[in-house]
Design a binder for these strands. Structure first.
Length: 591
RNA sequence: GCGGGAGUAGUUCAGCUGGUUAGAACGCCGCCCUGUCACGGCGGAGGUCGCGGGUUCGAAUCCCGUCUCUCGCGCCA
């Protein structure tokens, strides 16, 4: 028998009446009635009420214990009287009468209460993360994370994927985010980099003939944090497949994602969420920008953006007409049932647009057969009719250069959805964004650069690279988006060296540079590489969506703060001079 | 690097346009209470109002600087 316990704190029920049991756990709450004391004992699994009265010789000692002290109790399982049953507790029909107890570990006065779900400041929570992790919400989130990861592993293995570990100390990559660097002791002046993703390794695994690869992969990027981006490290379900087209990759991962979300759709929810079925909708990149104003659309938002440029061409609404003449476009976002919206509804939106740095937000409403609003009087009836408004509809307009108009109309779409409460929060809606452009213009330098992964295969391969305007070339590059959150990026890779040289040449890398930077990869492609591709959904973000948490740190056991510091472990920290010397490093005094 | 918000008891917060003793709740300490489950009741301790400077007869409150946390922008192939 285990020294510390015969049961977990969630186990006991009326099935165990009159049994002598041993439980160990933390003192969650104590209710002191003078000569009678209740202790809620908590472990990973649940809570059991223990009771002791002054007839017990240890009564005074037990009474003096602190919250979160770890104790072992020995006692008997008793049925609670019908009026004292606690239905909100799994063990609520019984209680343990304490016969003996032992203190396993005392607790000081807590900097952070464990037995409450009240919000506390992050600084304290991060410094005492182990206490925060004891608390109900975070504890449950981490258990959810475990469930998601173990389920992913089972599903991938079942589908014939092989799990790998790839190096953590590797080389720096020229494209992409800032790397975390690790100085080399043996090669002073040289540095390892932590991988931003195991991108090249997983391709090399394909070239090595393993056919299907996956890894719950740590990725390291030295970028500033956001609420959905933890600084330092994050985890991806990284996978790659040989002899596949884009469609094969979609078919392989869609069921995995669907099932993960479907299995956990009831987590922390009153009602099970609805999970969008596969095949997931596929939206070309340009269409996504046109219709949703973003490359990560939230499909729960029913509003669509339409092109209204024609309505304003040569119209009397000179502000728009003149801008259109100079190449601007007009986007419209139409909403329904606005008959009873007061004037202030529109004014507030106009004020919001100004706060966003826009000139304003013009609109037209259609009520009782009449077009109203500040713009309507400048447009002819014919033009107005082409808007095809129904009774009670309103439409908001954004006029700017294509890129700016797309971006802001996307914001208007979000804002209107929020104001009108149109979002079905209890639903997960996936989509693929496909046909990303291979290249884009760097607005600062006016040079052509890769818009995504430089190892992606251009659609049309060598022929497109040679004959087309680089900015028109699309890549076999795709993202998967859920509820407006980018879960992953993926691609069919470029497995032909000559196309690699050409695609890098267009982005301004000559043959020598490519050979120097990617020699391992390039050489590998010269000895027979299978066509291959994959993707890498972010695990933290998946768990975040399932747990319905607005902040990614709520699903990471030991996250760093926004300044990329670990307040509990005091990382990063200064190091001694002789260790710097050993590495051949000298610190620069910034003052 | 830039912009918004915040920093008051161990913790979460209140504290108006400056006014003399800076409050509440939870926690902590003491006393009372044998059926609670966020138990209850009575009493108590606990504060350099982030830090530095300024204005003023008087600053938690107003001004300037600075530090910290957080949200966003930049950044994130």
């Amino acid at each position: 028998m285990n020294t510390y316990r015969t049961h977990y704190c969630s186990d006991l029920s009326i099935q165990n009446l009159d049994q002598d049991v041993v439980l160990s756990g933390w003192i969650d709450t104590m209710r002191d009635h003078g000569n009678l004391l209740f202790i809620d004992l908590r472990d990973n699994y649940g809570i059991t009420q223990c009771v002791v009265d002054s007839s017990n010789p240890n009564f005074e000692q037990i009474n003096a214990l602190n919250h979160e002290t770890v104790i072992k109790i020995t006692g008997k399982v008793l049925k609670r009287s019908s009026d004292t049953i606690n239905t909100s507790l799994k063990t609520g029909e019984i209680e343990i009468v304490i016969k003996a107890f032992e203190i396993l570990s005392k607790s000081d006065i807590l900097p952070l209460p464990v037995n409450s779900d009240i919000e506390y400041g992050e600084e304290v929570r991060l410094k005492y993360r182990y206490l925060d992790l004891r608390r109900n919400k975070l504890h449950k989130n981490i258990l959810l994370r475990n469930k998601v990861i173990s389920s992913i592993r089972t599903k991938m293995l079942k589908r014939g994927f092989i799990e790998f570990q790839t190096p953590i100390l590797t080389s720096t990559s020229p494209e992409g985010a800032r790397d975390y660097l690790v100085p080399s002791r043996i090669h002073q002046g040289k540095f390892y980099a932590l991988p931003q993703a195991p991108q090249q390794f997983k391709q090399l695994v394909m070239i090595a003939g393993f056919d299907k690869y996956f890894q719950i992969a740590p990725c390291f990027r030295d970028e500033d944090s956001r609420s959905d981006r933890s600084p330092g490290e994050f985890y991806q379900l990284d996978f790659e497949m040989s002899f596949v087209t884009q469609e094969d990759v979609f078919e392989a991962i869609e069921p995995v994602l669907f099932e993960i979300f479907d299995e956990n759709k009831s987590f922390s929810r009153d009602k099970s969420a609805q999970v969008g079925k596969y095949p997931f909708p596929k939206i070309p990149y340009h269409e996504s920008l046109e219709k949703y104003g973003t490359d990560k659309p939230d499909l729960r938002n029913p509003l669509l953006i339409k092109n209204c440029t024609e309505v304003f061409v040569d119209s009397n609404f000179k502000i728009f007409a003149n801008k259109v003449k100079k190449g601007s476009v007009v986007k419209g976002i139409q909403i329904t049932n606005t008959e009873d919206k007061p004037r202030s509804f529109f004014d507030k939106l106009n004020d919001w647009a100004k706060e966003e740095g826009e000139a304003g937000l013009g609109y037209i409403t259609y009520q009782q057969g009449e077009y109203k609003g500040p713009i309507a009087k400048h447009l002819s009836k014919d033009k107005l009719e082409t808007l095809k408004l129904n009774e009670g509809d309103s439409i908001f307009f954004v006029c700017n250069s294509i890129k700016e108009a797309q971006l802001f109309s996307g914001k208007v779409r979000d804002k209107l959805c929020m104001e009108l409460n149109l979002l079905d929060k209890n639903s997960f809606q996936f989509c693929w964004i496909v046909d990303f452009p291979m290249y884009e213009i760097d607005e600062k330098t006016n040079k052509i650069q890769f818009s995504h992964n430089p190892f992606s295969m251009p659609q049309g391969e060598m022929e497109s690279l040679k004959k087309m305007d680089p900015l028109e070339v699309k890549a076999y590059q795709y993202d998967i988006v859920c509820n407006g959150v980018e879960l992953s990026s993926g691609a069919i890779r470029n497995h032909k060296p000559e196309i690699m040289y050409k695609s890098f040449e267009i982005a301004g890398y000559n043959k020598e540079t490519v050979e120097k930077k990617f020699s391992g990869m390039l050489n590998a492609l010269k000895f027979g590489a299978p066509p291959h591709g994959g993707s890498a959904p972010g695990i933290d973000r998946m768990v975040m969506l399932l747990a319905d948490e607005p902040n990614i740190r709520e699903v990471i056991a030991f996250p760093m703060n926004q300044q990329a510091m670990d307040l509990m472990m005091n990382a990063p920290s200064e190091i001694e001079k002789d260790r710097l010397e050993e590495l051949g490093l000298k610190l620069i005094d910034k003052d």
